[in-house]
Simulated assay, not measured.
Amino acid sequence: MTVEHRVRAARAEDMPAIRTVLGRAFHDDSLVRWALPDETTRDDVCAAWFGAFVDRYLAVGRVDVVEVDGEVAGVAAWRVPDAPDDHPVLASLPSVPGIVAAVVGPERTAHLFATLGGSSAHAPADPAVYLHLLAVRPGLQGRGLGSRLVSHGLATFDERGTTTWLCTAEERDVVFYERLGFAVVGQVPLDDAATLRAMHRAPRAPGLR
């Protein structure tokens, strides 16, 4: 049976499927397990937490999805450096910290976001695009869908001469991103649970991706 893949810009009506992909895909992610230790609520909280970011990036960033046989199977969400800081979506509820605080409490939430904020020390010196989220539905991982999503965005940013960067707490993902041209530039310890690695990628000329 032929499986058809298509990468396209996300639409508002994709959000239920996107949230579900995010919640399922990040269940065992090291950063998410550190932030949300309760497995019984993790998928729902992760879907709400990361879904709130995607809501914002639909308005002031870039979100791509990959379809498999007509259904959303993966998502890539990018934060762009020239996004307006006064867009109404940025003040909408639920807020990202509010979602997490409702589950783990305000004190723990403050610690989580202060720790994650340490990654800003490893941001590129010039304005750059940040790959905030990449997720593929479990069961379809390992088929090149994630690479297609990232490469689709990179093609645009390469044409614009824009640096891209990301952070990952998964050691196996470092090799994945290195194959796409990213390199580790710094680390942020997530207490004793994991290590967040910041990775940069310089723009490439056409034909050198």
Rank of each mutant, 00 (worst) to 15 (best):
residue 131 L to H: 07
residue 98 G to E: 04
residue 124 P to S: 08
residue 110 A to S: 12
residue 127 P to E: 12
residue 125 A to P: 01
residue 76 A to K: 04
residue 110 A to F: 00
residue 128 A to V: 11
residue 90 L to G: 07
residue 119 S to K: 09
residue 127 P to V: 05
residue 130 Y to C: 08
residue 109 T to L: 03
residue 77 A to G: 13
residue 105 G to A: 07
residue 77 A to W: 09
residue 79 R to T: 14
residue 113 F to T: 10
residue 125 A to I: 12
residue 114 A to S: 14
residue 99 I to L: 02
residue 85 D to P: 02
residue 84 P to G: 06
residue 123 A to F: 05
residue 100 V to H: 01
residue 132 H to A: 15
residue 128 A to F: 09
residue 84 P to F: 06
residue 90 L to H: 10
residue 123 A to P: 02
residue 108 R to N: 00
residue 115 T to M: 02
residue 113 F to D: 04
residue 130 Y to K: 12
residue 132 H to S: 15
residue 130 Y to L: 13
residue 107 E to K: 11
residue 128 A to Q: 08
residue 81 P to W: 11
residue 133 L to C: 02
residue 114 A to P: 00
residue 109 T to F: 03
residue 92 S to E: 15
residue 129 V to G: 03
residue 82 D to C: 03
residue 95 S to Y: 05
residue 112 L to A: 00
residue 134 L to W: 09
residue 131 L to F: 11
residue 96 V to N: 04
residue 110 A to T: 14
residue 99 I to N: 01
residue 82 D to K: 03
residue 101 A to F: 01
residue 79 R to P: 00
residue 81 P to Y: 12
residue 135 A to V: 12
residue 123 A to M: 04
residue 105 G to H: 05
residue 113 F to A: 03
residue 127 P to T: 07
residue 86 D to Q: 09
residue 127 P to L: 05
residue 102 A to R: 13
residue 112 L to I: 15
residue 80 V to S: 10
residue 134 L to Q: 08
residue 83 A to I: 08
residue 133 L to T: 13
residue 112 L to D: 00
residue 130 Y to D: 02
residue 84 P to S: 08
residue 86 D to F: 03
residue 120 S to G: 04
residue 135 A to M: 11
residue 119 S to T: 11
residue 76 A to L: 13
residue 96 V to T: 14
residue 77 A to M: 09
residue 121 A to I: 03
residue 112 L to H: 04
residue 134 L to S: 07
residue 108 R to E: 05
residue 130 Y to S: 04
residue 121 A to L: 11
residue 90 L to F: 10
residue 119 S to L: 13
residue 106 P to E: 15
residue 87 H to G: 05
residue 106 P to Q: 14
residue 99 I to S: 02
residue 113 F to I: 06
residue 102 A to Q: 10
residue 82 D to H: 13
residue 108 R to D: 00
residue 133 L to K: 00
residue 127 P to Q: 10
residue 85 D to Q: 15
residue 134 L to T: 09
residue 79 R to H: 10
residue 116 L to F: 13
residue 124 P to F: 09
residue 107 E to L: 11
residue 86 D to A: 08
residue 128 A to R: 09
residue 85 D to G: 14
residue 121 A to E: 14
residue 90 L to C: 10
residue 133 L to E: 07
residue 124 P to L: 09
residue 81 P to E: 11
residue 106 P to H: 14
